[in-house]
Nucleic acid binder design. Sequence first.
DNA 1: AAAATTTCACGAAACGTTTCACAATATCAG
DNA 2: CTGATATTGTGAAACGTTTCGTGAAATTTT
Lengths: 333, 333
Amino acid sequence: MKKANPAPTMKDVAKEAGVALGTVSKVVNGLPVGDAYRIRVEAAIEKLDYQVNSYAQGLKANKTYTVAVLIPNSYTPFFSHLIYQLNMALLKRRYRMLLCCTDYAPNTEQEYINMARQNKVDGIIGLTYDPNLVVDEDIPFVTIDRYLGPNIPCVASDNFAGGQLAAEKLADLGCRSVAFLRVGSSLTNEPNKRRAGFENGCLARHLNYTMKILEDGESFDEFEIFLRSHLHDGRLDFDGLFCVTDRLAYFIIEMLERMGLRVPEDVQVIGFDGVRNFGDCDYACSTIVQPVSEIAELCVQLLLQDDSSMKPPLVCLPVRYAYGGTTRENSRQ
Amino acid sequence: MKKANPAPTMKDVAKEAGVALGTVSKVVNGLPVGDAYRIRVEAAIEKLDYQVNSYAQGLKANKTYTVAVLIPNSYTPFFSHLIYQLNMALLKRRYRMLLCCTDYAPNTEQEYINMARQNKVDGIIGLTYDPNLVVDEDIPFVTIDRYLGPNIPCVASDNFAGGQLAAEKLADLGCRSVAFLRVGSSLTNEPNKRRAGFENGCLARHLNYTMKILEDGESFDEFEIFLRSHLHDGRLDFDGLFCVTDRLAYFIIEMLERMGLRVPEDVQVIGFDGVRNFGDCDYACSTIVQPVSEIAELCVQLLLQDDSSMKPPLVCLPVRYAYGGTTRENSRQ
DNA sequence: AAAATTTCACGAAACGTTTCACAATATCAG
DNA sequence: CTGATATTGTGAAACGTTTCGTGAAATTTT
């Protein structure tokens, strides 16, 4: 049924069905209406191919069913999976997702927050960078991986446990001397706890450990310098490496191979994130997997629940280890 | 300036400034207003921390400044980059992006199209799968990589030229016998032209060529069977491979290495897409790069331009070759 | 059978904008 | 100084919903 240009409104449906406006509204919203009326209204809706205007609804209800998602970009694997899962979690609740890529720029982040407010979104989920972000007190806000204050719930993986798990795994897989590699970030965000967790795990398992943390401007080449300084007669001082992200692990593995070291025979490598290299292929490396889907689900739950007194300031979700070819699994595994 | 619960409206601003509603509206929209009035209104806006309600605007103007983007998922590298660039192109024009991941499911695609219509979006950009998609005639629709009909503009890379370019590159790099590898898809979409282009290029350059196209249910293992059947005494019949996507190329390269063949020494490999392995690192392989940013920009332009008579049914954008370590660049390059 | 009660459709008002006919003021010619 | 013209602020109406007080009809009670 092709309809002339102006989209049919409730008023048109009411006229077509010979009922009042309010009756149509009730039918549309599933409120109790006499069967005779319901049938007439439904027929009219069908005939006119009527669709409710959700923006008029939003105006009336002061609710837009829109959530803004602030994220540095959509193409880093962890982010792109997060977006996917957030999209699913929101759509399940009939919410729309307004995606804002910030490119790590603090002023862009602030701009988007203001813009989100102007768009009267029902809430904001932010994986943000700027520690001095000014968030509006009266718009629900949930962060990922960044604790901004006791009134702003933060959802993250259990990064500390993830670090511990990496150490334990390496120990279980026979490592004696390990290193932690991280790209520099002066930020105090949740993923930083990976280091502390790893250190803790190494101590518990009596592993020798070394850290190499890149400073803010330093290039990845520093890692090669570091590794070469620990290379003697073609043998590395370490038999295990824990990289702060899979992306870094991927680089390091290529670097090791260029240096003539075999992974996992000479040195085992564990990364962090657990996202797939090409979207749905194997893991790029053995890794600590973040529960992306659960993170997304919880963010949305916390954001949309109205009882703000029940919102915990920080939730850490359990991580797990996954084999990805860069460790030597033993038979007990 | 902390404000009590109900957000201030234009009416509040008008009262505060002692002017009429229409005057505030003009100031907000940058229409000519006497300086004395403008100053009073701007002061009131500042004082009350007023933000226009863009949903009320949308209702009045019958324009929601929202565009729905239908895409299989957000984590496949090509898609995630597309989303990023679409986001940028839309945001530049103050449009919002409603992201819908369809998981390649035809019914989900149709559902989302209906939902988008309900949400009164100003347009839809779709990278869709279902060839029988029912699109609403009176809502602007632009597709990516899939030609649905003369009234629905389609934006794509010049896949044919890309295929040609791959063949020419392989020829220039010294190949004599090449193969084209593709995963099966019975769909008639734009990327299918890569094969025809490659074939064309091979003929022009007198290259021996072979095709291996996976049928719909077949696993990637078929490629190994195919390659092994062309392996004699550790030497492959081909010295060049063109893979339909970088993702496939990535698999094939790993497969070749497992088979004891060196890339690019024994066999050179070119993929297609040109997206980065971990978001912003090097190319995963030598590749034909799709102009993702231009595709996104053009989609948005076509979608939002009102003169529908000027919309071309199909636009193919130029691709380029990029070195990614899996070809032997010669000195002339 | 009449009164009391319940049920439920009706339609006006309101949400926060934009727009437009109108009125008020300022400008200028004669 | 008057009357015509240009300028610009005013406020009501409209956009498409939801909500809620009103009252008519149906049902139950005595």
